[in-house]
Design a protein around this nucleic acid. Structure first.
Lengths: 196, 196
DNA sequence: AAATCATCATGAACTGGTTCAACATGAAAT
DNA sequence: ATTTCATGTTGAACCAGTTCATGATGATTT
């Protein structure tokens, strides 16, 4: 399956786009290869693009006052990523979005997205649903952070997103969970081998 | 200004609705009075409505495993509220949404909203923007929780949303910040009168 | 094949925030 | 006018998670 075919399948699975609509829609995306550790969004600069991950993985994070990294989001195949506040409001980003491995994305830029939404009710609808899913997902994240302990959060994420847990470096996962790498290491090794 | 005039102003401030479009749109909302401590959303039941607050204030919260309340969102005049995951996906709610004072809301139900979005590109666009703002807002909340200490979060919320801080009960604010009422009380009294 | 860098592990001392208990105050209900 | 309930305060003991220090292992670079 080509890169564009993946995006097309993604769209048609969720919305009733005809083939020609889907093709027309996909034409507005640009395929880009991204090397491991390369940034696709950086603080200060406005995020001009929204990215659909065809292959590889990414990590969005901010740097705290004392220099610690805090992971806001991961994205693997078939997910979308960008600095949401920067992209939507076209204002300077506060996040880094970095490739965790050599990756391939399909990106759309802000003006093109605006034009698509204006052009066709169906496309507007597509982005509305995308925004709703993002909002719902973020709301669940807030609830998880408020209601569960670090250990429970770890267990939840491990069960719910095993592909991510097994794929991203431990320090990235720790900062996603809101704990230190040391503590995550301890949680992990607590669970295996009480080494009787 | 009547209740519907407030919603109309809210819409026209953010979107280019003609008067007749705005009137047509607003007709789909129903005015409801809600008494203090009354619930407009409850766990187990599917949230059938989205609410625009005309007057008063609300609090959305979940109950944790040990019975503690965790506030997910507040809403005062000119804000929207519901259990987002329940409403969007029409599945059973996990939240309570309760009036903090006698209030007036304008509510729209799920089917009506769907019909509006289908009927007119402009209405679809309205809800797309609403979803984007919700997503952006939630993303900022995640960042705040991950990057700041309880005290910094308190200071931030106090400065950014003084109307809320001064209006909601302290235990509700504490559970919004992710701390106990006792600790919030201490933070507050630390700040005033070192009583030399 | 070294040498360097990125990642993970482990222990000991420490701290931000919790828990528990007891009390103070005002608002609502009878 | 009391009683009850909802809310906020304060202190002391406690614990989940941090910090700091040190070392192990494997991946990248030269």
């Amino acid at each position: 399956m080509t890169d564009f075919a993946k995006l097309k399948a993604h769209i048609q699975k969720r919305h009733s786009f005809t083939d020609s609509e889907a093709n027309d829609f996909c034409q507005n995306f640009k395929m880009t290869r991204v090397k491991k550790r390369q940034f696709i969004v950086q603080p200060e600069f406005t995020a001009k693009n929204r990215f659909y991950v065809v292959q590889g993985s990414f990590r969005a994070y901010v740097i705290g006052d004392e220099g610690q990294e805090h992971t806001i989001q991961f994205a693997i195949e078939d997910w979308w990523i960008t600095d949401y506040n920067s992209y939507i409001f076209q204002q300077p980003a506060s996040m880094f979005v970095m490739a965790l491995e050599d990756s391939i994305v399909l990106q759309i830029n802000y003006e093109t997205e605006q034009e698509l939404k204006k052009r066709k009710h169906l496309y507007e609808s597509f982005f509305r649903v995308l925004a709703e899913h993002t909002a719902a997902h973020m709301a669940r994240r807030v609830i998880l952070n408020l209601t569960k302990t670090a250990e429970q959060r770890f267990e939840f994420v491990q069960e719910r997103y095993p592909e991510i847990v097994n794929r991203v470096p431990q320090y990235a996962l720790a900062s996603f969970l809101g704990i230190t790498t040391e503590y995550l290491s301890k949680l992990r090794n607590k669970r295996v081998s009480p080494k009787s």
